[in-house]
Design a protein around this nucleic acid. Structure first.
Lengths: 341, 341
DNA sequence: CTGAAAGCGCTTACAG
DNA sequence: CTGAAAGCGCTTACAG
């Protein structure tokens, strides 16, 4: 399959490849007639410049690398991250950037993400990850490669995240207003920024209502997985004084927690109210439909693309950190109770 | 960020770039000592060849394009296709191929998928789509670009799909064994291969048990969406003689159908049994958990990668068509009834 | 076993 | 307004 090149167009029109290139790239000083003739030939021949050759000379590939570091082992199927990637993709494509997935291998050789990014010559990367102590992620953040990182706070690169802390507070507001006073928290692993912030919001909320913090009511659910939530809830269920409500730091974890409650012969929300975080697709379909904090994955992806593109276009400036608003979505997993304590 | 090139390695080791290149690419006739020296320098300098420059000379980019043509508007978040892509990605990466998303735009210019594929110089494409009458998809299939297409039957390219027809038969077997005789079908749009085959399986199943085909029991649910299933079920609910069971040609459609049934004040499975197709993640979590036909998305993706890679490596040979087995997953949306008719 | 040279398909100073 | 030439970073005949 021999593709037509700029040489073919030059030969056909009688102009040099230089002029053809200029006509194609909208250089101002090309004679209108010349340009017209060239563009017609281009149209007729179905010619389109080869991005690889162009990249080699311009040092711009108009590709973004996407780097996934997720602990669920689901890759692209991740219920929250996939929405972020989709939003990022839509926006990036609008600016002519295509997405290319980057892993830690090049062929069969194990390399760093940075090596892979350089190998492919991407203009920037989006890193979508939960664990910001992963040394590979740290290297990424500190590298000179333009990047935007999701769910992390850092001043060494562009970052974007939801207002996780405030989300936690909203949960407590909601539960408190329903009469709950014994509120537990299944936390995300504390080396994740989101886990930390949601926990912080939980504590701020409790303080606001002078509820006091009961350390046995805070249990670590790990990396936001169903199993982690299941196990953490089982810990809580061993307590003498059960909580009446649990704020779970992620929706999948919340589903696991609900499962544990059902297994123990208790009901949601009749015996224990549950609130999640994320508002993934499943949250509205499960029974009971999950009350949760909605993050706008699509917007996060789009804003991430904007950050990255702006960063690339304004080399001089520093880094941006963007925080997105969150919203409480009331569904069926929380219930009003009479205030006991 | 100036990257090290093959010239830097050549200068450092005192050999020519030719020799460095050969050492790197495991050419047989390079002196062992030379090779060792070069590889050490490469290691020390953190050098890795630039894929763009390499692609320009070799005409191989070691990238695959992924083309999504889906009618739900969810893109990468598609509950079934995302699993196929993930499997494809895993396998492709093992062979050194990276994935790049292709759309119908290059920058802001509307182009064909083929133009975009050529622009990026991908070595092959996977097309994941449901509608095989889309002219863009037809062009793709007929183009000389190596490709593998999901959910389509064709002898003009490599294709892979589940045994949709047999899946339909399995559904009827199951429903018949539960005592159902009045079985309706919400079909996928008939310009989709999967829709056609599942319908065929439905009919074969009915014939097998001499149930006869009632045309008013077959209603078109469109492109497998929730809304389509919802509307189609409403059509069925207008019938004088309601079916006792409905085989719905996709899980999302089935959820829509269940919603319609609930809205009508009926229950699943007590009044009407429902069987879906796909076994997407949600199917097991929804209430009632959905009885459905499982397709192995991961395997489909992996086999698709194998087909594409084999095709590229053995230019002479023709095209392959692979059919994957399916499996009935019994859950809570189907129920035994007493045989009436 | 090693190197000089050509070439992949573009873009971009530079010159006119 | 247009073209010849160099160069991007590699690989691969070809020659020795």
């Amino acid at each position: 399959m021999k593709l037509t090149t700029i040489y073919d167009v030059a030969k056909k029109t009688g102009f040099s490849i230089t002029t053809v290139s200029r006509a194609l790239n909208n250089y101002p000083d090309v004679n209108e007639k010349t340009k017209k003739k060239i563009l017609e030939a281009v149209e007729e021949m179905g010619y389109f410049p080869n991005s690889i050759a162009r990249s080699l000379t311009t040092k711009k590939s108009f590709t973004f690398g996407v780097i996934f570091v997720e602990n669920l082992g689901v890759g692209i199927k991740h219920p929250f991250f996939s929405g972020v990637i989709e939003g990022f993709k839509i926006r990036a494509e609008k600016f002519g950037y295509d997405l290319i997935f980057l892993n830690r291998y090049i062929g069969n050789e194990e390399k760093s993400y940075i090596d892979h990014a350089n190998y492919r010559g991407v203009d920037g990367i989006i890193v979508v990850c939960s664990n910001y102590e992963d040394p590979e992620v740290v290297k990424l953040i500190e590298s000179p490669l333009p990047s935007v990182v999701i769910d992390i706070h850092s001043n060494k690169t562009n970052v974007i995240y939801s207002n996780n802390c405030y989300g936690g507070e909203l949960v407590i507001d909601h539960l408190y207003s329903l009469g709950h006073r014994k509120i537990a928290h299944i936390a995300g692993f504390d080396d994740t920024y989101t886990g930390q912030e949601r926990l912080k919001g939980y504590k701020l909320g409790l303080e606001k209502y002078s509820l006091g913090i009961n350390e046995s009511y805070i249990v670590n659910g790990g990396y936001f997985s169903y199993e982690g939530g299941y196990q953490a809830m089982n810990e809580l269920l061993k307590l003498e004084e059960l909580p009446t409500a649990v704020f779970v730091s992620g929706d999948s974890m919340a589903f696991g927690a609900i499962k544990a409650i059902k297994n123990a012969g208790l009901r949601v929300p009749d015996d224990i109210s549950i609130v999640g975080f994320d508002d993934i697709e499943l949250a509205q379909h499960i029974t009971p439909a999950l009350t949760t904090i909605r993050q706008d994955a699509d917007l996060m992806g789009k804003k991430a693309a904007d950050l990255l593109i702006n960063h690339i276009n304004n080399k001089e400036e520093g880094f941006s950190a963007v925080m997105l608003p969150v919203e409480l979505i009331k569904r069926e997993s929380t219930k009003k109770i009479s205030v006991t304590q």
